[in-house]
Simulated scan of single mutants.
Amino acid sequence: MSKTILITGASKGFGKIWAEAFLKRGDKVIATARNLDTLDDLVRQYGESVFPLKLDVNNREEVFAAVNAGKDHFGRIDVLINNAGYGLFGAIEETTEQQARAQFETNFFGLLWATQAVIPIMREQKGGHIIQLSSVLGVVTFPTLGIYNASKFAVEGLTESLVQEIAPFGIKVSMIEPNAFSTDWGGTSAVHTDPNPLYEKVKGELFASFTPDFFGDPKATSNAVLKLVDSANPPLRLFLGKISYPFVKQNYESRWAEWDAWKQVSDEAHGL
Rank of each mutant, 00 (worst) to 15 (best):
S2V: 05
G9V: 03
S11T: 01
G15L: 00
A21S: 00
G26A: 05
I30K: 09
T32F: 05
D40M: 10
D40C: 08
D41C: 04
R44V: 15
E48P: 08
V50Y: 03
D56H: 07
E61M: 09
V63Y: 10
F64K: 14
A66F: 03
A69D: 04
L80N: 09
N82Q: 09
G87T: 12
L88W: 07
F89C: 06
T95C: 14
T96F: 11
E97I: 14
A100V: 07
T106G: 08
F108L: 15
F108N: 02
F108C: 02
L112F: 15
Q116L: 13
Q116H: 05
V118S: 00
P120L: 00
E124H: 09
E124Y: 00
G128R: 03
L133S: 00
L137Q: 12
V140L: 03
P143W: 06
P143F: 01
P143R: 05
I147F: 00
K152R: 14
G157Y: 12
Q164Y: 05
E165Y: 04
I166L: 05
F169Q: 10
F169S: 07
G170R: 08
I171S: 07
S174A: 05
S182I: 05
W185R: 10
G186M: 15
A190R: 12
D194S: 12
D194R: 12
D194C: 07
L198W: 01
Y199W: 10
K201R: 11
F207E: 13
F210R: 05
F215I: 07
K219N: 15
L226W: 02
L226P: 10
L226V: 13
L228C: 06
L228G: 09
V229F: 10
K242W: 01
I243T: 14
S244Y: 03
V248F: 01
Y252W: 12
W256M: 14
A261H: 08
S266E: 13
E268H: 11
A269W: 03
